[in-house]
Design a protein around this nucleic acid. Structure first.
Lengths: 184, 184, 184, 184
DNA sequence: CATGAATGAGGTTTCATTCAT
DNA sequence: GATGAATGAAACCTCATTCAT
């Protein structure tokens, strides 16, 4: 921290940026390395292949969001309802929107790259949904499984709007949560 | 039915099938033609390029769904509330789920193929949302624009489940509509 | 004559026109047939292949010009000097310029198509040169072989100007002949 | 010499050789690379496309000959008549004949490849002619523009003989120049 | 650690030619 | 004779990956 980034991190940052801009398929390894100011071959010192690189990007965002939600659930379990809700429903959403480069990669590149990435995406979605349902249950919401689907669907829709149309969606998301009776 | 299809239709059907299975990027023209039992070059008698082929697939599903919704809106305007709701909220959803090959192409290939396809997708989404909002307004629903976002997001989520996880989602969709106060 | 053209002739005329415009390599058989208002396959009822078609074009112009020159030489031999010179040096040049479509094909497509066409071109050139030298000898010109090379080279250059730059070259050609002491 | 050539140079040399032998259209990129002992893809590290490669070949010869003539003209302007004539009329011709591979590409491939190459050829010819006329004017020759056309046409004819029929033409060219009163 | 030249498999597209009607 | 749908060989070009320095 404060330190100049490691070579691997430079590649990751560059890849995030370039893939966000051009999409995974149109991004060449040399785009990433030249964005990072490194030689083409350097890429392969840190990643086995382009696919593995994508997987690393995807894991990052998946892990970050999940851990946020899990911390929220711990709070809920500890009786800190407001703080928990905040993390589970707001902070996690804001994180995704803030990390729109990674989010775009997760939501829009994962499915159409290959079947193994599709699996990765599905697994991620299942994990999100499970946590969400648990949170809703802890909050005593009726039909938590159904509500979870509505929440996750609408969230995804707004994230899409943020990414594809650069729309501001944070406030809208609060409205949605209010409408669904999850926030007041 | 039972009639032999035109060559173009054979290509379209084959393409739909193969792209659904392998994804647009992994599908080679020769995959499509050999699935159709035709020679490689035949493809180019009917489509200018692989991209144009994709566009045709995308247009098909977009047009079909939109026209269904529009017919529903006409009914709503004509006072036939129940029939209208049926078309706008149920039949259109069922159509998408039935045409899951095309739907997958629309929802998952459009965004990550090239910017022009992304625009096509965005335009489609805008059109869907506009119609949906209109329908909700005709039904006297409060906050029709907000509701439209929730509806479209959740619908998309369930379609994704149907496509990626082969989950049965028709009944679930009815539950969602009921939960949102749109059906009884 | 006066009759509508035969199918074969329609193809030939169309080919002449299209190849002049687009060049032999860029011209597709279907360009020729559609210019002629015929079906694609019809081409192959009259020509064995695209190459044979080119050969026929090339033969046409070669034959026409040679026969003109030969008639001129006959006149020279019969003592009709002025009429002979007229044919050999002027009419033949004018014919080539008038038939610029065929001339372009002969001069610019023959060499770079394949080795057999190169041979055809070389043979044509040898024939032209032989006749020209004979004519010059009949006229009692000194160094007829050398003069023939100068005449043929300059003629070709002006034809090129006419074809590539649409320059008017008939008068210029007369000046050249005068400069070379062949006309007064 | 004896030094190993750069990769780009190896490709250029190989291309020159192969195109001379087979013609531009019949030459595949892989012919060039395998002649150079390199992999197919290497070609595209040094040239954007087959067309750009051709352009480079064409530029080379055009530039070389023009610079020779321009040096000759400088000499003429400086009063060094004999040395200037030598460069303008003899050395430049010899250079073209020596570089017959490139000359063939310039004279026979440029015209029939595409319109942009045709333009390149026409521009080259215009430049040659302009210089030649200037030289003739500096030498006090009458009708320099007409003479320039005769000189350029005949030169081109002899170059063609050298290339297509492997004829020895240097001495013949001297005869031509003498016949035209440009050398003694 | 880093470099970047070289590799070559693989995909899209074109179009001369055939042939059943 | 005429048609035009279908064929499939070839050629261009890209780019992930390797490896000698």
């Amino acid at each position: 921290m404060g330190q100049s980034l490691s070579t691997k991190e430079r590649l990751t940052q560059a890849g995030k940026k370039v893939i966000y801009r051009k999409g995974y398929h149109s991004t060449r390894i040399s785009d990433i390395t030249s964005e990072a100011g490194l030689a083409h071959g350097t890429f392969y010192l840190y990643f086995k292949s382009k696919e593995e690189f994508l997987l690393e990007m995807l894991s990052t965002i998946r892990k970050e969001v999940l851990s946020l939600i899990e911390r929220g659930i711990s709070l809920l379990k500890g009786g800190k309802t407001e703080e928990g809700k905040e993390l589970v429903f707001l902070r996690s959403f804001e994180l995704i929107v803030k990390e729109k480069e990674l989010a775009k990669i997760f939501f829009f590149e994962a499915i159409c790259t290959s079947n193994s990435f599709q699996e990765f995406y599905k697994e991620g979605k299942r994990l999100f949904m499970g946590r969400l349902e648990e949170a809703l249950r802890l909050l005593g919401i009726e039909n938590p499984d159904l509500k979870a689907e509505i929440v996750i669907g609408t969230a995804r829709h707004l994230v899409e709007e943020a990414i594809l149309s650069k729309r501001e969606v944070i406030d809208r998301w609060r409205e949605v949560l209010r409408e669904l009776g999850l926030f007041s």
